[in-house]
Nucleic acid binder design. Structure first.
Lengths: 177, 177
DNA sequence: TAGGAGTCGTTCCGGTCCGAACGACAACGG
DNA sequence: CCGTTGTCGTTCGGACCGGAACGACTCCTA
């Protein structure tokens, strides 16, 4: 046993700690200093939830079709907005343009979308789904959305909308810097 | 100009689209099919907010100290729980043990933490901060927490706690599969 | 007490990610 | 006209990421 068996940790068995445990351990490190526990908990859970949701959707919906999360998001953006410039795709998908180049290359190689030069500006590149890509999205989106419903199933309708609204506030707050 | 200038997009100028615009464009793709818009908006914003928060904190707090987000999380976990086995660090930090090996290697090379073999089990490895690592955390955590407060500043206290609670529900929902 | 089963951290691989640097191109100026 | 400036997408380097395979080690059992 010995003290190394996490006698100070109060583990819940699977290595996860509750907020209360973390708060107590943190108090030992920062005795006296003021800590915004609510903000800390919110930020931690945003990041934790995002990764959990991503991994879950990748495994249940995307993996059978050999799609990564980023690949899916890019396909979705192009599907919705169609015939869109790559720089806008990058902004909309929330990735850098450097990353997008590789992702679009992969998707184009698989015949899901196509690149073409902008007719009025040879620097720009337009992207659009192929027929194969549109067919895939028509099949996949209902499955994806059903899983989105599933992961939010433990929330009431009001809680779900409040969640989205609060998160938009956080994003807006960051963008006003 | 031409139709390629996003006449169908209703861009807000910076490449971002509102939920209403997305909903309308989506309706054109899925006319008739039922869509859980609330779940979709919630999932999208969770992921968007997580990345925005991460990037913001990396730039404002972590970058000056040449720390990555993952490196910071690992340091934080070890700081809070101290003398902890690597497998628990991986679980707590939300990364795989394969990834953790590399991150710990980097942090150890910088003298921020130290590895040592578990006295009762030669397979296990214990990790603890060095004096330098503890000093860094004492300096950095208040700055980090202040930025966490800042990004949630546009939420009321009730909204912040509700946000964290809803996100925990989402995580719990996924883990019950 | 010796062998098999299980668990630990590590290594490797293919892929993702960002930011900086780069070349191609367009727009503006003299 | 032609250089300067700025904006595209692309390329490259370094870090991260999960999952599979691996060797080292412990535990269980006959």
């Amino acid at each position: 046993m010995s003290r190394y068996d996490r006698t100070t940790a109060d583990a819940t068995g699977d290595g996860h700690h509750t907020l209360v445990e973390t708060e107590r351990a943190l108090a030992e490190r920062l005795s006296g200093l003021p800590v915004d526990m609510d903000a800390m908990a919110a930020v931690q859970n945003v990041y934790r939830a995002a990764n959990r949701v991503r991994n879950h959707l990748e495994r249940t919906v995307l993996a059978p079709h050999d799609l990564t999360w980023t690949g899916w998001v890019v396909l979705w953006v192009v599907w919705i907005w169609g015939d869109i410039e790559t720089r806008h795709v990058a902004t909309e998908a929330g990735i850098s343009k450097g990353t997008l180049t590789g992702v679009i290359g992969t998707l184009e190689k698989r015949g899901l979308l196509k690149r073409r030069t902008h007719p009025d500006d040879a620097r720009r590149v337009l992207v659009a789904l192929t027929a194969k890509g549109r067919k895939l999205m028509t099949t996949l989106f209902p499955q994806f959305n059903a899983e989105e419903s599933h992961v939010t199933a433990s929330l009431t309708a009001n809680e779900t909308t409040a969640l989205a609204r609060s998160l938009r506030k956080v994003v807006a707050q960051i963008e006003t810097d």
